[in-house]
Structures are given as structure tokens and as C-alpha cells.
Nucleic acid binder design. Structure first.
Lengths: 195, 195
DNA sequence: CCGAAATGTAACAGAGATGTTCCATAGTTG
DNA sequence: CAACTATGGAACATCTCTGTTACATTTCGG
């Protein structure tokens, strides 16, 4: 949900093409979250489209990956906005952000695993605007005295992502209700960063 | 260090062959930690051995992967033993374990990423004896009242691995001293699991 | 309904990795 | 030295994935 227009439209697309393009990107996110090295055939199958069609929209594999990255970042940006990080106490804001990010599911995995594999370089989530907002909130909390002064911004940013990823893994592998995973994540984060 | 005999010897190996076999497995661990889909040529190059030689020791790729997995688990088992989990307060024991695991470096990454990719199934670290020991220590801490009663064993096990992985990533990406990453990891874990 | 747009099917060439074989060459050991 | 071991190098078939092309078929809007 919340597929706006970043990688969803190539401006020049008809409605039908836009639909197909989004279906492919969405399928790619799901498939690549499970296996970063998945073939285009698998993506095509997941999108219920022929491999040829995938190539019609994304000439090279890297083009699809780029679209996936764009879409993922767009979704994270939207989720960050919805969290209204500048409102209320910093710890509460972090919790709101986690709840929003948690809903992103596969997008979370894609980003955590370093844009799938983009250049095989595993540069993991490079600095995004969202990460900077998150870091700023952490800094605010530290000044307010609600966040531990001995933890760096970068560490806490990393920690948030890690805990979310852990929660998803936990839910998937332990076959536990989503909400339970999320609650454990929130509890652990709150205690870990508390002043 | 601590390469005992799990995947290092095929019993029937001369000293020379055992050396080569271990060099290949060690190189594979390093290379595959960086890229789970790395080719055998890359592994061979890293081991300073020809690709042919790699195939002499490991007929198929999956054989090498299996040897890597065995070696990784052996190292984790040894590290777990060194931590003497049954000694002292549970939180202290967990910290000792983290310090030991942290030293494993690439082995950590290999296991965290699900034995590289073994069957492409991303079954991530399945239950090992070490994990069970870790879980038992957590349970002990909970009974002693030193570990939060509202966090499940499985969650904390997952958390330990994730935090270690995060610490490594943090050190690598933020170009920060190893010890600083480790300390942040320990501090976060201690606070997160505290009763 | 008709035509253009969108998709599917099939085939192909090329790149890269795997796994195998054969032969040559170091190294080691008796 | 001589025999044996371990390794390197090159060549090969095979496989999978990628990217491209040509042609047939469906779909949908005017």
C-alpha cells in the first residue's frame, strides 16, 4: 500500500502499463526479500507476467533493482512522515516510527540487506533522509535527557533497523503473532535506549 | 584460531592435504561472508589455490558449503564452551558469550546470514546446541530474577545474534574501533534484557 | 467493430559458473 | 636419484541466467 509515484510511473505510461510496472516492482520486492539473487524468471512468475514483459519495463536487471530501491526508499520516507517524529517525547516518537516501519514488511528486509545486493557490494542501507530524521530525533531525546547519553546516534539508528529485522525474523521463524514480535521489539528498544 | 578437526581433516589426509583443505575452508568463510554467492574461482584465489584444487577437495559447491557450515558451527561451539555459561550471574555470562562470539568475525556473518545460502532457503541459523545453551542461560537468569520475565528465550537468542551482527556492521561502516562496537553491543544487550 | 497497445511464446546468442578430464610440473620423501 | 604426492593449467561440455528478436495473441479504448 501507499505506492505513490516514485517507481510506479515512468511518466509516459498508460494506466495499464503503470499497473503492470507496479506489479513487477511489488513482486520483485517480495521475491528479492527472500533471496537477493533470485532470477528474473522468479520475479516474473511472482508478478504473473512473462519474463519478456519484465524486460520490456526494465531493460536490465540493474534497472529493476534500481526501481525496487526507489520504491523501498519512497515507502520508508512515507512511513517516516506518518510517524511525525518531531512530536512528543523522543522515545515515544521512536516507538511510533518502529510501528510504521514494521508494517513495511519485505521492504524492511530489502533495505536491511543492503538494497538486495545492488552492486554485490553490500553497502547496506546508505544514509537516507529518513535515517537522518531518525538520528535527529535521537539527538533531541538525548538533549531532553530521555535517551542514554552514552549511545551514539549512528548506533541507535542501526539498532532500530536491527531490532525491526529481528522482530520480523522472529515472527517468521518462531511462527508467532506479528503483534507479539512488534511488542518485543518495542520493549527491547525502549529499555536499550532509555537514559 | 581454534581450527580443531571438524572440517579440517578428512581422516585419510596427509599433513599437506589437511593444510590445504583448511586454507580453502578458511578462505571460503572470508569470501562467502562478504558475498554468499561468490564463485569458486574467488574462493580459490583467496585461498591462493587453483580452482581445480578446490574441486579436488570438494567435488561440488555444496560440499564446500557443508564444510564451511561445519567449521563455523565448530568455532561457535568452541566459543560457547570458553564462555562457561553456567558460571556467575546470567547477564555476565551473556556478556562473556558476546565477547567470545564477537571475535569470530566472518564466522558470525556466515551463520547470521543463514549458512551463507545453503539451499537458498534462508533458513538462517537453525537450532544448534550452542543456541540451546544460550537459551538455557537466559532461562536461568529469568529464574534468578536478573533477566526480564516478559522477554522470551527465543527472542533474546535472536537478539544476541542480531546485536553482534549489528556491532560488526557498525564497526565496518562507521569506521570505528572494534572495541567501541563491542561495548555498544554489550551495553544495549545488558539494558535490553535487564529485569 | 477496429486498430493500437500490451502481453505471451518461442527461439537464439552470449556470458559466467560448474564440474570433469588430461597432462605437465613442483615438492617431498625414501 | 626415483617414486609418489600435490598442485597448476588448459580445455571441454553443460547449465543457468541474461538480454534480444520475431511473431502471434489478447485486451481495451475510441
Amino acid at each position: 500500500m501507499a505506492e505513490t509515484e516514485t517507481a510506479a510511473r515512468d511518466d509516459g505510461d498508460t494506466a495499464a502499463r503503470a499497473r503492470t510496472r507496479r506489479a513487477i516492482v511489488a513482486a520483485a520486492i517480495e521475491v528479492l526479500a527472500g533471496d537477493g539473487g533470485a532470477s528474473l524468471s522468479e520475479v516474473a512468475a511472482a508478478a504473473q507476467v512473462s519474463r519478456t514483459t519484465v524486460h520490456r519495463y526494465f531493460a536490465e536487471r540493474s534497472d529493476l533493482i534500481a526501481a525496487v530501491a526507489d520504491e523501498a526508499i519512497a515507502q520508508v520516507t512515507a512511513a517516516t512522515r506518518r510517524a511525525c517524529l518531531d512530536r512528543g517525547p523522543a522515545p515515544k516518537a521512536l516507538a511510533r516510527l518502529c510501528r510504521e516501519y514494521f508494517e513495511l514488511g519485505s521492504v524492511l528486509t530489502i533495505l536491511f540487506n543492503g538494497v538486495v545486493d545492488i552492486t554485490e557490494q553490500d553497502w547496506a542501507r546508505c544514509e537516507t533522509d529518513s535515517d537522518r530524521e531518525l538520528a535527529a530525533t535521537v539527538a533531541r531525546g538525548r538533549e531532553e535527557g530521555s535517551i542514554a547519553p552514552d549511545l551514539t546516534d549512528a548506533w541507535i539508528v542501526q539498532l532500530v533497523w536491527t531490532l525491526l529485522y529481528t522482530a520480523w525474523t522472529y515472527v517468521r521463524e518462531q511462527d508467532v503473532p506479528r503483534q507479539e514480535g512488534l511488542e518485543l521489539c518495542l520493549r527491547s528498544l525502549r529499555k536499550a535506549v532509555a537514559a
